[in-house]
């Protein structure tokens, strides 16, 4: 379990993470979502031991991550902005990673050439952005990590390669129980692969739970009639007599409350992750209207 307890991180007078608590259960695929500037990348740098927290604890299976090579060799990270040694080829990077990560799997590396089909000897910096991303996956997966941390992992990859990469990751999760933390803005994609989700804003964790719980706890309610009291309404819009509400709570609870006021019509619909994201953040002054000029 990758755990972050009450972590605060400041950059000068700016507080990037404010008492953040996040728990990534072992063997899960955890989606970390949040608006730009929410602190996702900072959280990832702290989780991978790059930054030192001002306060709080970051542990993997109870052991601190920061400046702990034993733990860090079990974590591999593909950052948003990948950086290789200038003029390094994939083969040179393999040798480097092999010297750094004791569990580096040479055989897997050879096999993955068939998947990614990247040139061995060319300089990586001459690769396209998508190819550089593939090279990062190629290298990272071969380190045989227990925790794979990915920041916007499939940006720049074509749809086929996206599917290929997700497939690789999920098969690794299935075979080795790898824990995967993904930070992404592509919520539709996350919805397909994540089993846990955390929503961050302004350096804080607004919400974190399993996707099933999250989707079972927030619903879209359409009704014609009076809105019952006692519902936790995140958002409401009216179209003629038809009212559409985003309501927090289980289907049973909502259904009971609505039935009590006897509306002319009502229906309870599941929400997508993207809708949950939008409406949850709407409650903390990050509504869609704010970003539409």
């Amino acid at each position: 379990m990758l755990d972050m307890q009450n972590v605060t991180k400041t950059f000068g007078s700016f507080t990037a993470l404010d008492n953040l608590t996040m728990t990534v259960p072992q063997g899960t695929v955890y989606g970390l979502v949040g608006p730009n500037g929410a602190g996702k990348s900072t959280a990832i740098r702290l989780l991978t031991g790059v930054y030192r927290p001002d306060s709080g604890r970051i542990t993997l299976e109870g052991l601190p991550v920061y400046e702990n090579p034993v733990i860090k060799q079990r974590i591999c990270c593909i950052p948003d902005e990948i950086f290789y040694f200038p003029s390094a080829s994939l083969e040179e990077m393999r040798r480097f990673y092999k010297g750094i990560y004791p569990r580096f799997d040479d055989q897997l590396f050879e096999r993955l050439y068939d998947v990614f089909q990247l040139p061995k000897k060319s300089q990586i910096r001459r690769f396209s952005k998508g190819m550089q991303k593939q090279a990062a996956f190629h290298l990272s997966i071969c380190t045989r990590p227990d925790v794979l941390v990915l920041d916007e992992p499939v940006d720049g990859l074509d749809p086929v390669m996206r599917r290929q990469v997700w497939s690789l990751i999920l098969s690794d999760v299935a075979q080795r129980g790898t824990t995967v933390l993904i930070s992404s803005h592509n919520l539709r994609e996350l919805e397909d692969i994540c089993d846990h989700v955390g929503i961050m804003d302004h350096g804080k964790m607004l919400l974190q739970r399993s996707l099933a719980d999250m989707q079972g706890n927030t619903h879209k309610l359409q009704l014609v009639g009076e809105v019952p009291e006692g519902l936790e309404v995140l958002h409401q819009s009216d179209s003629g007599r038809l009212k559409t509400l985003i309501v927090r709570g289980s289907v049973d609870r909502i259904s009971t409350a609505v039935s009590a006021v006897k509306p002319a019509y009502f229906d309870i619909l599941p929400l997508s992750l993207e809708e949950i994201f939008i409406y949850e953040l709407g409650g903390v002054n990050y509504e869609v209207k704010n970003i539409v000029l």
Partner: peptide, 18 residues
């Protein structure tokens, strides 16, 4: 001095003393 390189290298399993 290079943020990207600095972060990438310090994510590797090595102490700063190393």
């Amino acid at each position: 001095f290079n943020p990207r390189m600095c972060n990438a290298l310090h994510a590797l399993p090595m102490r700063r003393e190393d």
